[in-house]
């Protein structure tokens, strides 16, 4: 049947996407779509129950991911994906909750929530697409924008220090921290699968090109040039001390799995505490009563 042809060439990640929402808004050469592909592959590989999966985004180009995945998905407010996700997880511990958002969303306006969720070790999988810029609003400086690069709000060059996100979340308490680029699609996918196996706050940073704003303004070429740069300048250093993985504008990009440690997550700690303090009087949360 001629239809078979269509099915045969079906991209394996397509069942995870809302086909009724294409075309998407992302620019040609943008890395966000690539990360979604790796994410979908991780869902296939980790055999995760899709019905139990909820995806939460903040606001930004990356924040639009929530609108394209065929999952229970929440496009929240700027910076607040993590606290919303925290609420989902607390009220229904059976959910697998993924936070998928941009560097600005997660580390600037949402920075306080990021460190506190890591500190509490809430069982969330955070995928941070770091394009080193506020893209959706037109290329302004983000906390991650490297020194010397030019942005619309630092037209003479960025002079403030930038965040090293892996170091930040490790210090705050994350149990799993990895960084890959959009060149490393398989490694990224594997990292996401691995994070699904962990209980606790997991953080995966994906260095991703924004050709339209960051690359262009900094004369770094298009999406393809970004791939070349990622290929040539990335160095895999699993277990690298996160203090050594800070990003520069044109230097080496250290990638790999930096942190993989065990620490009881928030809900495990909470239950243990209530058992200890309340004994028989502790009533475990079951199905919520309102439906």
């Amino acid at each position: 049947m001629s239809d078979d042809l269509v099915t045969d060439i079906l991209n394996p990640v397509e069942p995870f996407l809302r086909s009724d929402r294409v075309p998407h808004i992302w620019c040609p050469g943008c890395g966000i779509g690539t990360t979604v592909n790796s994410f979908a592959r991780a869902l296939i590989d980790s055999n995760i129950d899709l019905g139990s999966l909820a995806l939460v985004s903040g606001i930004g180009c990356t924040g639009r991911v929530a609108g394209y995945v065929k999952l229970d998905s929440f496009h929240t407010t700027h910076g607040r994906a993590i606290p919303f996700a925290t609420g989902l997880k607390l009220a229904n511990p059976k959910l697998n909750v993924v936070v998928y958002s941009g560097d600005g969303d997660l580390s600037a306006i949402g920075g306080n929530h990021l460190i506190h969720a890591a500190r509490r070790n809430i069982d969330l999988k955070v995928i941070c697409v770091n394009n080193l810029i506020y893209a959706m609003t037109g290329g302004q400086t983000a906390p991650t924008t490297p020194d010397h690069s030019t942005t619309s709000t630092n037209p003479y060059g960025v002079f403030e220090a930038s965040f090293n996100l892996p170091q930040l979340v490790e210090a705050a308490g994350a149990v799993y921290v990895a960084r890959w680029t959009t060149f490393h699609v398989r490694q990224l996918s594997r990292a996401i699968s691995e994070a699904f196996q962990k209980k606790g706050f997991s953080f995966i940073e994906v260095i991703s090109p924004c050709p339209t704003l960051y690359q262009r303004r900094n004369k770094m070429g298009d999406g393809l040039d970004a791939m070349k740069y990622y290929k040539e300048k990335s160095r895999v250093r699993h277990g690298a001390p996160t203090s050594e993985v800070g990003m520069t504008m044109t230097g080496e990009i250290i990638v790999g799995k930096f942190v993989d440690r065990e620490r009881p997550d928030y809900q495990t700690m909470m239950k243990a505490q209530f058992h200890e303090s309340l004994g028989e009087r502790f009533v475990e949360q079951t199905e919520m009563v309102c439906s």
Partner: peptide, 9 residues
């Protein structure tokens, strides 16, 4: 609001 969308009041 996350709590509500997970089924709680």
């Amino acid at each position: 609001q996350g709590m509500v969308w997970a089924g709680a009041k």
